[in-house]
């Protein structure tokens, strides 16, 4: 938010502008219109989802004969049971959670360390490394997975839970950028005073920088959650074993020539959404404030 606060520092004198008084009736009209408009926007977001929710509780016959908004005569839970069992969702949730924890932890440690060095030590080497990281962030990874797969396999990580973890940690350049941009706003005077007190650089990183980076860490956690939770490709290719299934692969199982019926697919979608929804409801405010912190700096 550096750029913003700088803007605000500029003298801004509201009396330079000549505003005209708005009549009260017009104000009320505006208010009504505002609510109407926002309500409409929310409706646009909700309606496609509502159809999924309703559809998931229908029988197949109801699904193909009744209007999308018609509620089922008797809510069917069978679709959820089918999706839950066929998708092996329980195991998927556990594996997803493990991967999330490891990857987030790893990203935060390596990301903050990298950012600390790259942002605080301005040497030719760190500048060059920073440039390389920027370049890497722009690479389209379309034709790269053959090589990536070879490397993962050579490291003996194929079909282990470490394969996605290390890929999520090792290819996350955006997080490093969020940390670097955040560090731009943390004054070096803190580091300097600690160094004057005889602290080592590691100590500066650990006791000063890391705690200061908390909002950025939160941002990275949120972005990581969304991307890892929804990523199908990595888990599908690198851990085909049943014991290593994740939530997003469960949903993909319902697609393709051998796919299931819509009601079951909808139930699968709902099951996949629920964990996101729960986390979202609990952490709503937190997510907003921290996403903002991250993206503004991107």
């Amino acid at each position: 938010m550096a750029s913003l606060s700088k803007k605000n520092d500029q003298p801004f004198d509201i009396s330079d502008y000549h505003f005209t008084e708005t009549p009260k009736s017009v104000k009320i009209l505006f208010k009504v219109l505002t609510y109407l408009f926002l309500g409409m926007c929310c409706l646009v977001v909700i309606l496609p989802l509502l159809v999924v929710l309703i559809g998931a509780f229908k029988t197949h016959d109801e699904y193909i004969t009744t209007n999308v908004f018609t509620l089922p005569a008797v809510p069917q839970f069978q679709n959820f049971v089918t999706a839950f069992i066929n998708g092996n969702v329980m195991k998927g949730l556990l594996n997803t959670a493990i991967i999330l924890v490891i990857s987030c932890f790893g990203t935060i440690i390596t990301g903050t360390m990298t950012a600390f060095v790259l942002q605080r030590f301005k040497m030719l080497f760190t500048r060059a490394v920073k440039g390389v990281f920027l370049f890497a962030a722009l690479l389209p990874n379309i034709a790269m997975q053959v090589t990536v797969f070879q490397i993962v396999s050579k490291l003996g990580l194929y079909n282990t839970i470490w394969a996605p973890c290390i890929l999520y940690i090792g290819t996350d350049i955006v997080s490093i950028y969020i940390f670097i941009q955040f560090l731009d706003n943390i004054s070096v005077s803190l580091d300097e005073s600690a160094i004057l007190d005889g602290a080592s650089y590691f100590r500066v990183y650990w006791s000063i920088i890391l705690p200061m980076l908390r909002p950025a860490i939160a941002t990275v956690l949120v972005i990581k959650f969304v991307s890892i939770y929804n990523d199908f490709y990595t888990a599908n290719l690198y851990m085909p074993s049943d014991d290593l299934s994740v939530v997003s692969t469960a949903l993909y199982k319902f697609i393709g020539p051998y796919s299931a019926q819509w009601e079951v697919i909808f139930a699968g979608i709902i099951i996949c959404i629920i964990p996101s929804l729960v986390i979202f409801l609990f952490l709503q405010k937190f997510i907003y404030s921290n996403l903002v912190a991250g993206s503004v700096k991107e």
Binding site: I98, I102, G156, Y158, N159, I161, W162, S241, D243
Partner: peptide, 14 residues
């Protein structure tokens, strides 16, 4: 740990 379990299990499978 759970992660270890998974890796040993599946490296054998692989």
């Amino acid at each position: 740990s759970a992660a270890d379990n998974n890796s040993t299990d599946n490296s054998t499978a692989g």
